[in-house]
Amino acid sequence: MPVAAARPIAPTAQERERLKKMAYGHKTEHRMRTRAHIVLHAARGRSNARIARETGLHLDTVRTWRGRFADDGLPGLADRRRTGRPGTFTPVQTAQVKALACRLPAESGVPLARWSAADLAREATARGIAAFVSASTVRRWLTEDALKPWQHRSWIFITDPQFRTKAQRVLDLYARTWQGVPLGEDEYVISADEKTSIQARCRCHPTLAPGQARAMRVNHAYSRGGAVAYLAAYDVHRAKVFGRCEPRTGIDPFMNLVTQVMSTEPYASAKRVFWIVDNGSSHRGKKAADRLTAAYPNAVMVHTPVHASWLNQVEIYFSVVQRKVVTPNDFTDLNEVENRLRAFEDRYNATAQPFQWKFTTSDLDDLLARLDRHTADHPEESSAARAA
């Protein structure tokens, strides 16, 4: 019986380039890589039998994909739609589970804070939505609409009536401007705050260094060696940190930090030194600003808006300290904590560059505009915020 001749393959230059990327791309699926190799071999005029021998594939497999490319081109290499097994659940059941996921558990009388896929599967069964549904099926349904009821994000409304004015002052200082006038060479911007309660946790067994395929091991059990407050002042444009440890936070410890900075050059003889602080009890309100100016006439205190500590750049430095110095917490005593912090300051100041602060007054206006639109669309949330 005569053997059917192999289908001739003549891809265009563009198709050939796409086939090469599919055949040799690092991220190409194996099945698509195999099909592309078949077509490229066929384009060189090789027979199906030879391609099967060289690729280790069955002759029917080579014949199938060669024929599909000859008929449909590159789209022919994709899998065809299959009917598959009939669906077990109706669209109504799927919608009912999604609707349940979009309600708080308390609204359904369930004593949970958040839904998990397993909780939703059990609740759907209990309500008679389905005789049985697995957690993986529920998770697949929720993925279609990007629903993740087991996650949560916190939020807070702006309550400071002078939010924009205060925030703009801070952002202008980061851009080296004050009241519309550029800052001079002898004017500086300091961002200051406190990192409270850094504990000295003495692990009951020594920490083990990482090894091959093994992470650092830190013993879970520890004894408490006390806590210390870490105060830091960060020169925004020079990327220089001044820090100190105190037994606790308060007015006096904060003023000790101020003295540490303002008694050194170039701040002692500067025309003005702007101190950006949040609304913590150590430096809150007009009394704190007057106290600072009385001690150092060239110092100007600038407060961030209420609930807007994220505008204070020293918080970025504190996040670095938390990751690189404090975590994992394994200190024998408070002296080791303080020594580590002082040594890290020296290391940081030797190589630090100013933070690439990108949030500008234009971004601030966009943020406030979005919040205004959200408040207009959800007036009940605005009323709740004012009541709080």
Rank of each mutant, 00 (worst) to 15 (best):
A232N: 09
F242R: 02
G280A: 15
H237G: 15
M301S: 14
V300D: 06
A294N: 07
V273S: 00
G243L: 04
D235V: 13
P266V: 01
V300S: 03
I251Y: 09
V236T: 06
R284I: 07
S269P: 01
Q260K: 01
D278R: 10
G285S: 08
G250S: 03
I251R: 10
T259L: 10
A270I: 05
Y296D: 09
R244Y: 14
D290E: 11
M262R: 09
R248S: 13
V306K: 08
A270V: 01
V241R: 00
G280M: 04
R291E: 06
N279G: 15
A232M: 13
Y296M: 06
V300L: 04
G285D: 05
Q260I: 02
H303Q: 10
M301P: 07
P297V: 02
Y296E: 05
L231R: 12
K240W: 05
I276F: 04
I251H: 05
A239Q: 00
G250D: 04
S309T: 13
A289M: 13
W275T: 11
A239V: 14
Y296A: 10
K287Q: 01
A294H: 12
L292A: 05
I276V: 07
R284N: 15
D278Q: 10
G243I: 00
A289V: 07
Y234R: 02
A233H: 06
R272N: 14
W310Q: 08
K287D: 11
C245A: 12
V236R: 12
T249E: 07
S281P: 05
T304A: 11
P253I: 03
S269W: 01
P247K: 00
Y234E: 07
A233S: 01
C245L: 03
S282L: 07
C245R: 10
W275K: 07
F254P: 14
A295S: 11
H303C: 15
S263N: 13
H303Y: 09
K271N: 12
A270F: 06
N279Q: 10
L257T: 09
W275H: 11
